[in-house]
Design a protein around this nucleic acid. Sequence first.
DNA 1: TTTAAATATCATACTTAGTGTGATATTATT
DNA 2: AATAATATCACACTAAGTATGATATTTAAA
Lengths: 105, 105
Amino acid sequence: MPKKYRSDAFAAIHETMEALHEIGAVDKKTMREFDEACLTPIHTLAPEEIKAIRLREHISQPVFARYLNVSKNLVSDWERGVKKPGGPALRLLTVIQKKGLTAIA
Amino acid sequence: MPKKYRSDAFAAIHETMEALHEIGAVDKKTMREFDEACLTPIHTLAPEEIKAIRLREHISQPVFARYLNVSKNLVSDWERGVKKPGGPALRLLTVIQKKGLTAIA
DNA sequence: TTTAAATATCATACTTAGTGTGATATTATT
DNA sequence: AATAATATCACACTAAGTATGATATTTAAA
């Protein structure tokens, strides 16, 4: 059984916060700070870490590339440290690292 | 209660496929084709669609940007059609469009 | 055992997505 | 009234990401 406590709890709390905001019980500033606090922090990933994430899912570079919607050569470059994943790519990899491939399938 | 039938079913089937592959009952080619078939197809998003996704979540451009791990100006550029989201950014937006913000939180 | 196909490393050249700064205007909040 | 958040816009810059193709090794199949 997959653990989904965190995301389920977050979804529920988020909806509650939205309702409270619409009623006027919570102001925009609080909403914004709440959302910021819910963000999974992002740290740069070392080449080996990226490769480890992929091997953990037991898939090849080409297939992994299609999941991320990037070219297969880019995945190779990441794993060899030739290039480093940027903004949105890093978020994607962080999500997969934490929740697995099925989170974005 | 959030609907997670699809991802739960996929996770279960995926694990079964892996087990069958390790036993030798399923070859690599079949595994690869299976994974490819599980990918949510990606279509380019119009500026209005991107804005719609964000408004649907009731958050501002800056907060949305932090969820995606991109700069706030880029979100503005997307929504005005000045720039178009590429590979990994498109995947991220497609996931949010289908599963909501909590999928990547 | 040979053939074929998938995988992964590597090189090169190119395009544009994404960053960062800063100005402006409008809208909320106190 | 004043402060802060939001959003549009301009500009220059960097490097992420693309595309193609060669090579080598492994893996599957005939």
